[in-house]
Design a protein around this nucleic acid. Structure first.
Lengths: 354, 354
DNA sequence: AATCATAACTAAAACGATTTAGTAAGGCGT
DNA sequence: ACGCCTTACTAAATCGTTTTAGTTATGATT
């Protein structure tokens, strides 16, 4: 007849006798010790130095047997720390945010942090509301992707492509001047002079600076962008349709162009569709260059020439800077601007001007 | 000289005199009442019925002035509830998970829940570890996307495309039989008989059932899939490259085919690239049909014919079922299977067989 | 023999709420 | 004048930890 010794004290899974996880108090009662002792020992506190190894071993053994794990909530309350951040993105499914989130996640999980995500889909009231909810949820910091902060936060904030001059914000941004130079340089080297540009939507925080950089670089190259060759993305759909519509308008205007610089890869894909429908081949008739280098870019037909943003790295940098600020406390100074470099990826959607 | 009356009690932002949020105790001290009274009144408890309106108003006013908001951690500890879930996905940036997450998020936030996300990138140790960490973090339930549960969890679990027979799991799955019928029916109707198929990677939970459904449907249609026309995705890259490689192998085998049913849109895009390089035009020489209907599908060149999975809806259903199970408690029975229907989206990548 | 140090613990406060079980004061009925 | 009901609150326990400040024995030192 098998002995049942262990069955009524510890059972294999993570529970006391019932289904819930075991608490420190229960464990202490079982060992005939106080919770203080257990806590001190289990956390390796120096105060526990005087406790004999035998007792320590008993404690460790029981903790293992009962699958004890300290209650995170209780610990958070006591330590006034949650090891949790809030991440605000415009849209989860657009490839851009997801790319950044990849970098954020890798660094955070490795450092023992978790994060809440919320997507605002460009609705102003949500952009205002979510940071408050995050605050209520006791996050220790905020990462905002492509989302301007309207009001200063009591928490440390890192903004990715947010272009934010609110105090207390660390901005992770692309070197847009360089990006514009790379793209226009490439097109001009290929002999293009009549270059059309598609600006981003009003709400996208990159729109303004990217356009300005292109505008300035074009003047520097002495090939200014003709105002009638400037289009703008309109709706807030994350699909290529916006680029498709903008390009149709551009074509419809009658102005001719041999190259098109799209706001991003998604809209470049839409643009190629619109050009094709108008009987214009890419890259033979019109060269198209995108922005971002999302996964789909390399395998589009034709493969997209584009300006790569190091999205993963930007996310990782955001996480790193935020954690550093949290560790340092609010008194320490911190960088307000962190710049990352773009890269020109030449594929099949650009070719010499005819 | 302006009066400073309010400045030393409440200041505009959410703080007492210093920077931190105000606690109930501080608020109570300020009003000369006990925390009990404030809590009762602020939470609209019936016990507070006997408290005169005047006092209640004083409390509400002070709460507003000091921007009082109950500490979520303390409340969680007391109520033994966190209103937080864990979501486990293979990869954030692959469009599939992001689509499902969109639905999850919409429903959860609306119900006052937040969620932690973690992506395991198909690493077995992470698939085991993250549910434990979530548990430690006191989440109230788990959503697993395209990820089989290896061991039963003490928490309610909803699996999206996980095909999981672990007890305690609600499975949200696509009607794969119908999906296979739609796709093959379409190809066969177009006159295709030699149909190649690309299976998913071993680790993808949809791989097995999807292949089985295709296999069975093909037999039912009396156009069985020839074993030499079966390829499989190999690496765990989320890019179209896997589909590209699989298709090269298929072409290299020398077996001819007039249609290709890819595991998903991503691999279909890679397949089209490989076919193009081999001098085969889509859809003139080979028809290609994808799966999922991700954003990129409609704007690929040629636009992809595909089987749409209602990803958003699947995410939403997952969230709904999980919240219902949490509300019901673990005693109540729950559905083990929830099926959603696929949809055939005909675009330009399929055409009559030559 | 009194003092001191050390070992092996523990009591109690604290984190910030919620909630149950009271209590003190006043009014009313008989 | 006594009990009883209301009104307007409050004390204290509780959730599960962590941590500071002790406490009690025992052994060593002067």
């Amino acid at each position: 007849m098998p002995r049942k010794k262990k069955n009524d004290t510890a059972n294999g899974e993570n529970s006391a006798t019932n289904g819930r996880p075991v608490s420190l108090k229960e464990l202490a009662a079982h060992l005939g010790l106080s919770t203080s002792t257990l806590s001190l020992v289990l956390n390796g506190s120096a105060v526990a130095d005087s406790i004999p190894q035998e007792t320590k071993d008993r404690i460790f053994k029981a903790a293992r047997e009962f699958n004890y794990s300290p209650n995170y909530i209780a610990r958070s309350l006591r330590a006034q720390r949650t090891f949790t951040l809030g991440v605000l993105v415009p849209e989860l499914s657009d490839g851009y945010s997801a790319g950044v989130l990849g970098g954020v996640e890798d660094h955070l999980l490795q450092e023992g942090f978790f994060y809440f995500v919320a997507s605002h889909r460009h609705r102003v009231e949500l952009i205002e509301k979510y940071p408050k909810i995050f605050l209520d949820r006791c996050v220790e910091g905020l990462i905002a992707v492509d989302t301007p902060q309207r009001r200063p936060s009591p928490l440390p904030v890192v903004s990715v492509s947010g272009h934010d001059d609110t105090p207390g914000v660390t901005n992770i941004v692309l070197n847009h001047e360089r990006a514009a130079e790379l793209a226009l340089g490439h097109l001009i080297e290929l002999g293009h002079r009549r270059i059309a540009v598609i600006k981003g939507q009003e709400f996208s925080s990159d729109t303004e600076i990217r356009w300005r950089s292109i505008h300035d670089a074009a003047i520097k190259f002495n090939v200014p962008i003709h105002p009638s060759l400037l289009a703008q993305l309109e709706s807030d759909s994350p699909s290529p349709e916006t680029g498709y519509l903008a390009t149709r308008k551009l074509i419809g205007s009658g102005e001719s162009f041999t190259a098109l610089f799209a706001f991003n890869d998604i809209s470049a894909i839409g643009a190629i569709r619109a050009l094709g429908e108008a009987g214009l081949n890419v890259p033979e008739d019109v060269s198209v260059i995108g922005f971002d280098d999302i996964h789909a870019a390399a395998f589009h037909n034709p493969a997209l020439t584009t300006i790569r943003q190091p999205l993963y790295q930007m996310g990782k940098l955001a996480a790193e800077h935020l954690l550093k600020r949290i560790a340092n406390g609010s008194t320490e100074p911190f960088p307000e601007l962190v710049t990352v470099e773009p890269e020109l990826i030449i594929r099949q959607s650009t070719a010499p001007a005819k």
